[in-house]
Amino acid sequence: MIRTAPRRLVDYAPIAWPALMLVLFFVLPFGLMLAVSFFRRVPGGFYQPDFVLANYARFLTAFFGNVLGFSLGLALLVAVIAVALAFPFTYLLSRMRRRQQVPWLVFLLAVLSLSEVIIGFSWSTLLSRTAGVTNLLVLIGLMDQPVSLSPGFGAVLTGMTYQAFPYAVLVLYPSLSRLDPTLTEAARTLGASPLRSFFTVVVPALRNAILATVIMVFVFALGSYLLPQLLGRPQQWTLSVLITDQAIYQSNMPFAAAMAVFLVLVSLALVVLSTLLGQKEGRT
């Protein structure tokens, strides 16, 4: 099929509409947010146009430094755990017959699409005293009485990993299901055990894909805005929670926007990095 370059004005018509929509409702809001991050906050009101760096200067406080450090550390921990579980899982999934894969994929998509509100609600129920998992432990005699496991750091970590796991699987799925099966067959023929061929052939072959997935899941976990709120205590609040809090409850849009701009920069840098890793994989 020959793809022709657009020449006449009418040839450009099909892309004009999506381009207009995306510029108007994505680029413009984005630019506006960037502008607001330099605006001056009006106490009691919203904000007024100005050019101040005060919103960014607040990054230098110890409180913000703590939140940032905690957010990055938590997201990294979630990403590493989720990918460590998702990689062998996705490998096994991609080796199943197609018919067997489908129910798993439907299940994973259903969990992935669940609202953070529902994931938070479900885990806080599962970890609660009245309906929680400790009731089962009491039932089988391992514990004396049910206890509450939420809120707390463990609950936040569990909830966020739960949310990130299906995402990690679906990011890994294309590269794992396209992995040449003769690679592992060759290793098996040469006498390697399945476990050994997994670690010495599959994992090294997809080193870049794994790293790229860790970065993608890291960005995904950075975006979690409700789980730290629903399953954690205020000291476990992350940057995303803080942005929401400042924008909605403190009515400090300029500061919220400045934090959001910062979050965009971190995320973009990481996404570009993971894309570069992915391209490197494609070439070799």
């Binding site: 999506p18 381009a19 995306l22 510029v23 409702f25 994505f26 680029v27 413009l28 809001p29 984005f30 506006l32 947010m33 607001v36 919203f46 960005v219 950075l222 975006g223 805005y225 995303s240 942005i243 929401t244 924008a247 849009m253 919220a256 926007a257 959001a260 979050l263 965009v264 995320s267 973009l268 996404v271």
Partner: peptide
């Protein structure tokens, strides 16, 4: 541009819309 909203943390897109509609 079409891929961007989904890759960035959702809170950013949300805040962009809040400033925009406001």
């Amino acid at each position: 541009l079409g891929f961007a909203p989904f890759v960035l943390p959702p809170v950013i897109t949300a805040l962009g819309f809040l400033s925009f509609w406001n």
